[in-house]
Design a protein around this nucleic acid. Sequence first.
DNA 1: AAAGAGCTCAACCGCCCTAAG
DNA 2: TCTTAGGGCGGTTGAGCTCTT
Length: 284
Amino acid sequence: MSTNTKSFSSSSSEDDNELRRGPWTLEEDTLLIQYIARHGEGRWNLLANRAGLRRTGKSCRLRWLNYLKPDVKRGNLSPEEQLLILDLHSKWGNRWSKIAQYLPGRTDNEIKNYWRTRVQKQARHLKIDTNSTEFQNIIRCFWMPRLLQKIGDQNQSLPSHQNSIIAPPPLQPQFTVQGAVDMSGYVYNSDIEKQNTACILPSESPMEMSNTTQISEYYPSSPFGGPIVHHDHSVNNNGHDMEVFNLANSTPADNFYVPESESSWLDTDFSCSLWNMDELLRRC
DNA sequence: AAAGAGCTCAACCGCCCTAAG
DNA sequence: TCTTAGGGCGGTTGAGCTCTT
């Protein structure tokens, strides 16, 4: 959206010394860009004066960083970026600027807006607090896997090399929990707080989930697009040590085999750190 | 076609931290 | 040590756009 088309609140009769507020004009943008091109960023109050802008230093800084800076990326967030935001927010909370450091070209303002308009909206619809364990589980169990599927779909158009990881089968909805439909099309339980489990369990699983050992092996989200119910070690035909990951509702043919030497790319708690997933997807 | 509701996102506010004097 | 200015950051607002009825 171009703010240059918005109405301007200041009148032509306003005091010349009065600071301007509201949408920036094309002329102001040009002044700011030209000044920074010549003198660089920083000392924003001084910059505002010397550039001839009747704006506060803060306003200039914000306009530059969030809109005018050449490397600012426009347009919708990609699934990868959305996934990273969800993952990093689960770790750091509302540390928007810190999260933005991991999304080149995206501003903290943009990420904050995404969180408030997309993520918080879902929580409101479900009447769940975004900081609650329930909502975190929904993100981990349904939203993130769905984004991973989208990323996988995108990557399927690329040449694949069946090397270290066996390509996953198309992710089918593995949960039959009754409830609302989230923005990614999955069905989840809107009354989740009534569940006693810490995470949403698949309704059907090839693994018996009742004993303590196997439940301790259950990870609701994984880089492979679904919950991991078991993992083990094996040796392949070439004599290489492999880690074997079993997903819910999978057959042995669907297992994911990751060389031991590569498994360090996985988070120990399978919390879907994007850098690890990115690397895994690249290697698929 | 019109009106109202809902959504998006640029911009502002106010608090906090840090460095310089 | 205290004061002050600059800058960073998270929260909030509201104009304009889009969607729905």
